[in-house]
Simulated scan of single mutants.
Amino acid sequence: MLLAVIGAILAFAVRANTSVVSLPTVGIILMIAGGALIWHGRRGTRHQRVITREERAGGSTGPSSTVRQTIEDRDID
């Protein structure tokens, strides 16, 4: 977020003239980079686990059924 804020300041608030670099252009590049970092950080990392187990009703002699469970984790740093 800091990159986006600094980029906005350079693009819209600073009126200094330099012959080496265009500050509004640098500001726009920093705003785009900051926005991309914010977007990437909000996505997080997703993990998906599938657990399959067989259960028997009535002990070991009863009919069996397969249970499938999907667990989805999302890491947000």
Results as ranks from 00 to 15, higher is better:
residue 69 Q to T: 15
residue 49 R to Y: 13
residue 28 I to S: 13
residue 12 F to T: 11
residue 76 I to E: 03
residue 49 R to P: 00
residue 12 F to C: 04
residue 76 I to L: 13
residue 68 R to V: 15
residue 10 L to M: 13
residue 66 T to V: 15
residue 2 L to R: 11
residue 77 D to W: 11
residue 24 P to H: 01
residue 28 I to G: 10
residue 46 R to F: 05
residue 31 M to N: 00
residue 30 L to M: 11
residue 72 E to K: 12
residue 75 D to N: 11
residue 54 E to N: 09
residue 31 M to Q: 03
residue 64 S to C: 02
residue 37 L to C: 05
residue 72 E to D: 10
residue 71 I to G: 02
residue 33 A to P: 02
residue 31 M to D: 00
residue 21 V to S: 06
residue 64 S to N: 03
residue 52 T to Y: 01
residue 32 I to R: 04
residue 8 A to L: 10
residue 12 F to Q: 06
residue 32 I to W: 11
residue 40 H to T: 14
residue 19 S to C: 07
residue 31 M to Y: 00
residue 70 T to A: 12
residue 7 G to T: 03
residue 45 T to D: 02
residue 56 R to C: 07
residue 38 I to V: 15
residue 35 G to W: 00
residue 17 N to D: 14
residue 27 G to Y: 01
residue 41 G to K: 08
residue 41 G to V: 04
residue 71 I to D: 05
residue 39 W to V: 14
residue 38 I to K: 07
residue 9 I to T: 08
residue 55 E to Y: 00
residue 77 D to C: 05
residue 34 G to W: 00
residue 73 D to T: 15
residue 35 G to L: 12
residue 13 A to R: 12
residue 35 G to A: 12
residue 20 V to L: 14
residue 68 R to K: 13
residue 54 E to A: 06
residue 6 I to D: 03
residue 72 E to A: 14
residue 77 D to L: 09
residue 54 E to S: 10
residue 4 A to F: 01
residue 37 L to Q: 05
residue 70 T to S: 09
residue 9 I to Y: 09
residue 35 G to D: 03
residue 34 G to E: 01
residue 68 R to M: 13
residue 43 R to I: 08
residue 57 A to L: 12
residue 28 I to C: 10
residue 67 V to I: 15
residue 64 S to I: 03
residue 57 A to D: 11
residue 42 R to G: 09
residue 32 I to G: 12
residue 77 D to H: 09
